[in-house]
Amino acid sequence: MSDQALASPPIAGRSLWQDAATRLQRNRAAMASLIVLGLIALACLIGPWLTGHAYDHAYQDYVRTPASFESRPTAEAIPAAVQRVAARIRATPSDIAVNGDTVRLTLSAPRPIDQRLLVYFDRSDMFGTPKILATAEDGRRLSLEVPVEHLRFLFGTDGNGRDLLTRTLIAGRVSLAIGLLATGVALVIGVVYGAAAGYLGGRIDMLMMRIVDVLYALPFIFFVILLVVFFGRNFVLMFLAVGAIEWLDMARIVRGQTLSIKRQDYVLAAEALGVPTRDILTRHIIPNTLGPVIIYVTLLVPKVILLESFLSFLGLGVQEPMTSWGVLISDGARAIEGAAWMLAFPAAFLVTTLFALNFLGDGLRDALDPRDR
């Protein structure tokens, strides 16, 4: 048997990122959190098209309707609804009989009933277009068959009669988008700024970090109020304002990592070979700072979502008819005594997302820590 046949096959090595991915997959809490975040994002993305309700449509007959799997209106509520519509027609209903998806009734009045007023059934959220079965007493008595429009509100409705499930999912889009976009702004500014300050060093580093210290001293709420006064309230402003502040912590983290990395042999070798400063930053410095940066990003997203919720709670965030989890929680807090579901469901989505992001951040921290292998 030849020496070549006896030689063992080469062992394939693994990079730091492959090793980190393997360690992350073994972390059950982090993987479960990743699945939960994916499901929440998918629900917020496609869910509003599946609920059957528009997020800004107000059902005047279903204001503050409790959450339920039962379709509305119930058979017990139909006679009262017929009474309300008949009062607008100035007629008296009788012989009300509910039969599945239709209701039969008789309208009577001292004067001939104007059939054009039957449109009030159409305008109701509970009924469709009525059908006249018979006319008696010169039009003073009408026999009608009215279809019943069945609706479901799994999360109930808010104080304006809007479906809370649809609004919670739409709010998730806004809150998650603000969290990701603001974090993206903070990531780009903070990484570039911190890497440049740490690598250049000396007086440039001192000047750049003093600018960071000055920005730290500015009150965040005051800064946001100024932006609102000058540019108005809009969605883009929210993530620009939050991202323009949150990059300060990112810059400090990246600067600290850069101060350590720039003394490594491969960076010194690149400098000796005459590699331009820009290439050293983009090829050697920034890629090797991404471990702590990724961990901080997973912790920054929930922080940004909480900041947006806080600003919306104060009335400085997203405006009607658009909404966010902060806006819904603010509305639910004001109606907690009589409509607790208005607070419970948006708060549950927000808390679940924040917990999942924090567990994922802890898992990434453990997976990317070279000292914990």
Rank of each mutant, 00 (worst) to 15 (best):
Q60Y: 14
P48Q: 09
L24W: 05
R116A: 14
G156L: 05
I40K: 00
T129K: 15
D205A: 11
Q257S: 07
G194P: 03
G338I: 13
M208F: 09
M209D: 02
I189D: 01
I253S: 03
V318I: 15
R104M: 11
V229F: 13
V174T: 11
A196Y: 02
L151A: 11
A270S: 12
L316D: 04
G363M: 01
A30S: 01
G190H: 08
R255V: 04
D61S: 02
L240Y: 06
N160Q: 14
M209A: 10
A272Y: 07
F231I: 12
I253V: 14
V254R: 01
F223I: 13
V63E: 03
G291S: 14
F223N: 09
R140G: 05
T166S: 08
L306T: 13
I113D: 03
R141A: 08
A340I: 10
N27M: 07
I189F: 04
T166A: 02
A171T: 04
D369M: 01
L357Q: 05
Y55C: 08
S175I: 05
R104W: 09
G52M: 06
T102P: 01
M1N: 12
R233W: 07
F230L: 15
R203K: 11
E76C: 07
N99R: 14
S309C: 10
E246H: 15
D362R: 11
M342R: 09
G243K: 00
A86W: 02
A197G: 03
S175R: 10
I113Q: 03
A87M: 09
L176C: 01
N288W: 06
V297E: 02
P9T: 11
I178C: 04
P370V: 06
I40L: 13
F223K: 10
A20C: 09
G315I: 08
K262E: 07
D158K: 03
A333Y: 13
S175M: 02
D114A: 15
R14A: 13
L237A: 10
R252E: 07
V236D: 01
S68N: 09
F355W: 11
